[in-house]
Design a protein around this nucleic acid. Structure first.
Length: 417
RNA sequence: GCGGGUGUAGCUCAGUUGGUUAGAGCGCCAGGUUGUGGCCCUGGAGGCCGAGAGUUCGAAUCUCUUCACUCGCCCCA
């Protein structure tokens, strides 16, 4: 018999772990509620072109990481490799812009990318993310960043570093690209092979190189912040001053370049020292041109994605136990078949009254049922057997106090409240 | 896509220079007298030693292939 395993780079989230996921999802929802973001759910797959056109033709995501397939109708579809284009697509498709001046949307989504798996990097992963569509003001940047900041703070995560940069508007990019090329021209041949390609295709990425020698060579490269337009500069300065006003510390990183083509102006990452190579736990920025490029009216926007698995990994590394209680209030121990019918009525009644209850389904001895009740952490064990049936009672044992008494069967619900 | 490491019971791991029925701890199940938990004691179940092929009289131990995990590069959440 062939046994199957989960496909490479995917994982099962088991019952022992799901409470932590739920805790985090609830926390994120709660904070989004405080910031007045609303949840949006978009399909698992989209037309392939949505990503090739808007994530960026030259990005790694589009060129080599997409799960693309053709359906029976001949359509080319792609499993979501990131959350932003689908959200913007939905925003435009349903004219959300006509409802509110700014659409503040959040989502939980599975994300699919064909990559080499390693710790903190999977082929299917989960992101919570949000988009703020229609807000050009620097206060919007801070709205989004401060939400993430509070989220980490509330979870008790320490050591996260907010890295910040501005890459200016679309008109600044060519200027900067040329400035970089001009700077690097004298020593192109000394750069690592990938950077030599980057020099030709996307010079900005050279700044992101991990190679020591490249870093040294490019250490004094022109800084994009110096080149960007005056409006962009003012915008960035204001964002920084607002962050300071909120006491949110940040590190300016002139070499911060994100891998998606659509970013403009503010870009940021939250990094933790606890994750090894995959140290970005949350990343995002402005994409002021995307809505227009998708056929909408000019609508400056921004957002971020936050990796669930990396967040959990960080919590684990920090030894943070999330308070999750999955214990049933009551365990109902049943002895003998005469008691069975009374038992199933009783346990349904308990649940109908909002009391969580578990029982035995395998005909174990009372001793085993007690052990099971103990393992599950039940506060009360109700014992119902021949004796109890005769007397019309249930034995109620308080597991913590180790006290036991008989309670009339119709008074049990009150007894365990 | 490139390079390094690992792969033995549910979990964490031992398994000596290839040699007979593959081990431990934890967990699980059942008992420790007749209907009762957390400690302790006893017993038990459970492994085609990741998969496939090869070398050998004989392989968990050696070789190759493959799959998965893991670390770094790359990229990003």
């Amino acid at each position: 018999m062939t046994r199957f395993n989960a496909p490479r780079g995917t994982q099962d989230v088991l019952p022992s772990a799901t409470p932590r996921w739920q805790f985090i999802e609830n926390k994120f929802r709660e904070i989004c509620r405080l910031f007045d973001f609303r949840e949006i759910r978009t399909p698992t797959f989209e037309e392939t072109e949505l990503f090739t056109r808007h994530t960026g033709k030259t990005t790694d995501i589009v060129t080599k990481q997409m799960y693309t397939f053709t359906d029976q109708g001949g359509r080319s579809l792609t499993l979501k490799p990131e959350g932003t284009p689908p959200t913007v697509r939905a925003y435009l498709e349903h004219n959300l812009g006509t409802e509110l001046p700014v659409s503040k949307l959040y989502y939980f989504s599975r994300i699919f990318r064909y990559e080499r798996p390693q710790s903190g990097r999977y082929r299917e992963h989960n992101q919570m993310g949000l988009e703020m569509i229609g807000a050009a003001d620097p206060s919007a940047d801070v709205e989004v960043i401060s939400l993430a900041w509070k989220f980490f703070k509330d979870l008790g995560i320490t050591g996260v570093e907010l890295r910040l940069n501005s890459i200016g508007g679309p008109e600044d990019r060519p200027t900067y690209r040329e400035a970089l090329r001009k700077f690097a021209a004298p020593f192109v041949k000394e750069l690592c092979p990938t950077c030599q390609v980057r020099y030709e295709q996307n010079p900005l990425r050279m700044l992101d190189c991990k190679d020591e020698h490249c870093r040294e060579l490019l250490a004094d490269a022109p800084v994009i912040v110096d080149i960007i337009c005056d409006d962009c500069k003012t915008h960035f300065e204001t964002v920084k001053s607002y962050l300071t006003a909120l006491n949110i510390p940040y590190v300016l990183d002139p070499h911060l370049v994100r891998g998606l083509d659509y970013y403009t102006r503010t870009i940021f990452e939250f990094q933790t020292p606890h994750l090894g190579a995959q140290n970005t736990i949350c990343g995002g920025g402005r994409y002021d041109m995307m809505i227009e490029e998708m056929g909408g009216s000019p609508t400056p926007s921004l957002g971020f994605g936050l990796g669930m698995e990396r967040l959990l990994l960080t919590l684990e590394k920090l030894g943070i136990d999330l308070e999750v209680d999955t214990r049933p209030s009551v365990f109902l121990a049943v002895m003998g078949n005469e008691a069975r019918e009374a038992a199933i009525r009783l346990i349904y009644d308990l649940r109908d009254n909002g009391i969580s209850a578990e029982t035995d389904f395998t005909g174990r001895s009372l001793k085993s049922q007690m052990k099971l009740a103990d393992k599950l952490g039940a506060k009360f064990v109700l014992i119902i057997g021949e004796d109890e049936i005769k007397k019309g009672v249930v034995s109620v044992r308080d597991m913590l106090a180790k006290e036991q008494r008989e309670v009339p069967i119709d008074k049990v619900v009150e007894a365990v409240c």
